[in-house]
Computed example of a mutant assay.
Amino acid sequence: MAPVTRKCITITIGTVVIIGVALGTGLGLGLRNQHGFTGSLNDNPSQGGGQSGDQSGGQGIQGDLTYYAPGLGACGRYNTASDKICAISHITYDAYANGPNPNTNPLCGKQIRATRNGKSVEVTVVDRCEGCKANDIDLSPTAFNQLAKAAEGRVPVTWSWMT
């Protein structure tokens, strides 16, 4: 059997790395599209996004609205139930990640306007919602109660990024 050379090992490791990067990128893009986020992930809200900051081209993003008990959020801030805040879908939040520290996500501190049945509330992104689908948002109880009754639990909502 021929001895394995350093050149052969280097080529093999390089090939494995290239295949791993290609698979990881393809899987990430496939999962992002599979979850159906309707906003444009190319228009970063930290840079103003599309027209009036709305990622959906002015129509608003349709999703479900829920509420949660705030505490220490993914953006590294403590909040209470009386703050007008929200957690956005982990799919959207992770699409904007700019490193391993979630506190530095450019979506942290961005404003969202959520609208339902002619009522609106403006909230600040402070957290990441693991259980949310791509277009869902999770509000603090105070903000949720401006759009729905707590007993409703999950309701449809239209929301958009603000500038």
Rank of each mutant, 00 (worst) to 15 (best):
P102K: 03
N103R: 12
S46A: 15
C75S: 04
T5S: 15
S52A: 14
I91T: 03
V16G: 10
I85K: 00
L29T: 09
Q62T: 11
S40H: 11
T104I: 05
I13F: 08
D94T: 12
Q62I: 04
G73I: 02
I13Y: 02
Y67K: 08
G99Q: 01
F37D: 00
Q55K: 02
D94G: 15
S40N: 10
G60F: 01
N98Q: 06
T5Q: 07
V21G: 06
P3H: 12
N98P: 01
P100M: 11
A81M: 14
I19S: 13
G14F: 03
T66P: 08
G48C: 11
G39C: 08
N33F: 04
G50Q: 12
G20A: 15
V4S: 11
S89R: 06
Y93W: 10
Y67R: 06
T5A: 09
K7W: 05
L23S: 11
Q59H: 13
V17W: 01
S46Q: 03
P102L: 05
P102T: 06
A95P: 06
N103F: 02
G73R: 01
I18T: 14
T80P: 12
T92Q: 14
T12Q: 09
G76F: 05
V21K: 02
G20Y: 09
R6Y: 04
G99H: 02
A97Q: 10
G20T: 09
S40L: 05
T15S: 14
A74S: 15
G24K: 00
D43Q: 14
G76S: 10
Y78V: 14
G71E: 10
G49T: 00
R6S: 13
Y96C: 04
F37W: 13
Y68V: 08
T25I: 12
G60N: 01
G58N: 04
F37K: 00
N98D: 09
K84T: 11
A81V: 15
D83T: 07
I18G: 10
R77M: 15
L41E: 11
A22R: 04
I13A: 13
L31R: 05
R32Q: 11
A69N: 15
G49S: 00
G58Q: 05
C75A: 08
D64R: 13
V4C: 10
I88E: 12
